[in-house]
């Protein structure tokens, strides 16, 4: 599968912003990522054979390839291309801090909207059933997970209506979304992951989802400025979600700032990976196609086989 087509890969977010509708944005991104007929990159229990794998204790004996056992005298199970119909939830952070633009062309929320639109497009084409939820001042369910014609339109419309505001807890949102899934599914969190408690509650929620078998992917969206990768100059800075706490600083000369931010996200990433969740760090100045392609292909390479 060719992941890129050369031009749309390089499209930055500000160009996508000019395209207008999210549908067009999603198609543009996916066109750059997918070429020709495509399948879901996720392997699972579909009807189309994919490959063999050595039998492991606990595998379903109904998937043993007895003919191959007859020829080789070794046990193999047959893996199939997953026809998916997996229930998934795109959980978008709409808290006040997601409205931050920084030195990028679009806000973190807008970037997340682009990314969610592209992911929804990909998942629908792969047979999955994506839904949409958001959390800011409160958790809101906008579109339930479905896979039918017109669903993408509903989902993009709901995405388009998201606006930043309030302060929310990702952990609470994940708990509520996990409870809404009727069976095991996939939850993709798009957030800046700046939690009040340093992310402990988030890790707890992720751990609970993983314990019941859900797949959890955390996409951290941040700007280069807030990561300390660019010089913001001297100012009195405040967290949009805590406007009364003002810190006078020179962003370029605070040497420890970048390390502290990096340490926060590294700790969070480590905690997520320890709980079996996937962490993807993106910045708003990254071309979306490139970011999406790299992430999806890397997932495809290390996708655990479902049986």
């Amino acid at each position: 599968m060719d992941s890129t087509n050369g031009t749309s890969e390089l499209l930055p977010a500000e160009i996508l912003e000019r395209l207008g509708s999210l549908d067009l944005v999603a198609r543009t991104i996916v066109r750059g990522f997918v070429s020709g007929a495509h399948r879901s990159p996720f392997l699972g229990s579909g009807e189309d054979f994919s490959r063999h794998r050595a039998y492991q204790q606990g595998d379903d004996v109904r998937r043993l390839d007895w003919k191959l056992y007859g020829r080789t005298d070794r046990l193999y199970v047959r893996l199939f291309q997953e026809d998916s119909n997996l229930q998934a939830f795109l959980v978008v952070d709409t808290s006040e801090s997601m409205g931050f633009v920084g030195d990028g062309a679009v806000s973190k929320l807008r970037y997340s909207q682009f990314l969610a639109a592209a992911l929804a497009h990909v998942m629908l084409r792969g047979g999955d059933a994506p839904g949409l939820a958001s959390f800011g001042a409160r958790t809101a369910y906008h579109v339930p997970p479905r896979n039918r014609s017109g669903h993408l339109h509903d989902l993009l419309l709901a995405l388009e209506r998201l606006t930043p505001g309030g302060t929310g807890s990702a952990a609470q949102a994940l708990d509520e979304v996990g409870g809404a899934l009727r069976r095991r599914g996939r939850i993709i969190l798009l957030s800046d992951c700046l939690e009040e408690d340093g992310g402990q509650a988030l890790l707890g929620a992720v751990g609970r989802l993983r314990a019941r078998g859900d797949e959890v992917i955390v996409v951290r969206v941040a700007s280069s400025l807030e990561l300390g990768e660019t010089d913001g100059g001297a100012a009195r800075y405040f967290d949009p979600e805590r406007p009364h706490e003002v810190t006078a600083a020179v962003l370029g000369s605070d040497a420890g700032f970048r390390q502290r931010v990096a340490a926060y996200y590294t700790t969070l990433q480590r905690g997520l990976e320890e709980r079996g969740a996937e962490y993807v760090g993106l910045t708003t100045d990254q071309p979306l196609v490139s970011a999406l392609g790299v992430w999806l292909m890397s997932r495809a390479r290390r996708e655990p086989v479902r049986s």
Binding site: G232, R236, Y237, F238, P240, L251
Partner: peptide, 13 residues
């Protein structure tokens, strides 16, 4: 006065 979501990681200068 400027917003910065990661302002909590700054040290006062």
């Amino acid at each position: 006065l400027r917003p910065l979501p990661t302002a909590r990681f700054l040290t006062e200068d």
